[in-house]
Design a protein around this nucleic acid. Structure first.
Lengths: 145, 145
DNA sequence: ATAATTAAAGACAAAGTTATCTTTAATTCC
DNA sequence: GGAATTAAAGATAACTTTGTCTTTAATTAT
């Protein structure tokens, strides 16, 4: 559904929401290991997330690293998609029509729209923090054992 | 959600299901125009659909072209995804975990699984022919006006 | 048979994605 | 101030996707 870059972005931000704070930043090495992603590529992705929508923050130097502010942790998961430029995947027509709506629907529109609504709702209502909390509880995982 | 190739494949097969038969084959030019897709790329895609799962048939020479058998028209839309090698998109973990299940779920698994179920159900239960019928009725479209 | 028509096959290329590695710059510690 | 640490920035490269164009092969009509 999403690109690898966005998958890593989702995992990385959830990990940051769980483990980091302004007082406790995480290095790229730790993050990449924790979410089982390629180190340098993940660095690039986090770098881009510090621009854009200000989802992630970073500081260089000793005791530097990446972290998320308490405010950023409360952002909807969708803001990650937005920052990664893949938000349109939620809205897009499954058959690739540039315009696909009630007025000019593709053959799948009527049935797909109810699924799309749930998808959008899921990514809009769930916050990064809420997902992070479940990892803390140990009931869900951000990388395979 | 899907690749451009798969989007074209969906549109092309629905068009073929609506307009073609063994007695009335369609040329690549007509198909590409009807679904507003790049001609040569679409030819490649249809070519691949004549192999794989035998979703589309073709004959060369005058009055040749592409068509779908009545049997093929009754295939679920999902068979197009299968033939295009993108069926796993329906099953995949949104966060990119190789293994993501009830036993070892990602943070989105619990909420996403109900959406996934509907997605799979949609693509499995709808046939290519059913979607084609709606174009015939003029209520849905396979390209923008 | 020959010519015309049409898809198949193959070569190629531009663009995007996924990654790695090196150099630079900011920050902290001493 | 100098050394160490860490992310930022940039170059590069492999691979995939998207797309075009040319040549080949099959089929039909004359």
């Amino acid at each position: 559904m999403f690109s690898k870059a966005t998958e890593y972005a989702l995992r990385a931000t959830i990990y940051l929401a769980q483990k980091s704070s302004e007082a406790h930043k995480l290095g790229i090495e730790e993050i990449a290991t924790a979410i089982d992603s390629p180190r340098s590529f993940t660095a690039k992705i986090l770098q881009s997330l510090t621009k854009d929508n200000r989802v992630v923050s970073s500081v260089r130097g000793p005791h530097g690293g990446f972290y998320m502010s308490e405010k950023a942790k409360k952002l909807p998961v969708r803001s990650i998609l937005l920052a990664m430029g893949e938000d349109q995947i939620l809205e897009k027509c499954v058959m690739g029509l540039k315009l696909c709506s009630e007025i000019e629907p593709c053959p799948m529109h009527a049935q797909y729209k109810v699924i799309k609504k749930q998808l959008i709702n899921l990514f809009t209502s769930k916050t990064i923090q809420q997902l992070a909390a479940e990892i803390q509880e140990g009931v869900v995982f951000i990388k395979n054992k």
